[in-house]
Amino acid sequence: MGAYVARRLFFSIFVLWGAVSVIFLVLRLVPGDPALILLGPDANPSQIAALRERMGLDEPMLVQYAIYMRDVVQLDFGTSFRFGTDAMQHVLDHVPNSAQLALTSVGLALVIGFPLGIIAALKANSVVDRIISVFSLATQSLPNFWVGIVFILVFARGLQILPSYGQGTWQHLVLPSITLALPFLAILVRLTRSGLLEVIHEGYVQTARAKGLRERVVIFPHALRNALIPVVTVIGLQFGALLGGAVIVETVFAWPGVGRVLIESISHRDYGVVQAAILLIAAIFVFTNLVVDLLYGYLDPRVRLAG
């Protein structure tokens, strides 16, 4: 187990290296000069050249990459062109906001998604099941940004009961967290439903009934513990989608999180901040997947985590 975790952590270094290298390359391939953007359209060429030199952008790309990598291994993730402060610190300052939004969304999705999935499975092919299935199919198909805009139109502009942007009170959290939770919730409902339906005819569920256990005990824990195994796996994979969704939702609702920092930094070609944000998001993703895999081993004792 310890050896397994160590090996996974070792390999995740390469994953992070790959992620940050790709974003380094892409940032420099897309058009747009950070010095030009920073100085504005009225700047003269010599000013721009001077700034480029100060930013280190006059060097060949390979040299820039080597310098960046040298700094990164020393945990120096560069400086923000815009603010002149430490890039990673700028990103980390916004992590609590993102965590608040993401955890609320995941919590909402779990608290609503599991029960709906269980109800749908236990009442399979009934009217209730159909309603739940249509609801989850719809919410899974609707794009985040569209749902967010509709929410703003209905609840903020129309009914005027909730704020449309920014952060502060719990009311500010309602619309963005629901918007972010919906697709995740939909997947959770469908997975729980199919997972439970798959195991409900297994021999051990029949055994649980033959043991004279209450139907409630037959479902939880006997059937559900088994049904959750595939659900947990997919939750891990879906976490990436949730992080991507957060970028969009934070932008729509002007939520001051990492996602919004990322978008703003990209439009300003603030290379250091973009790279730091991507590195952090990739690290969270890798870590979450490791946790999910460990959880998988706990949920299914037949799985042995080989070091």
Partner: peptide, 16 residues
């Protein structure tokens, strides 16, 4: 009344 089933592998719950 109790019952013993044919296949003990599938009749026992794998996660308990």
């Amino acid at each position: 009344m109790s019952m013993v089933f044919q296949d003990p592998l599938s009749s026992l719950n794998p996660v308990f």
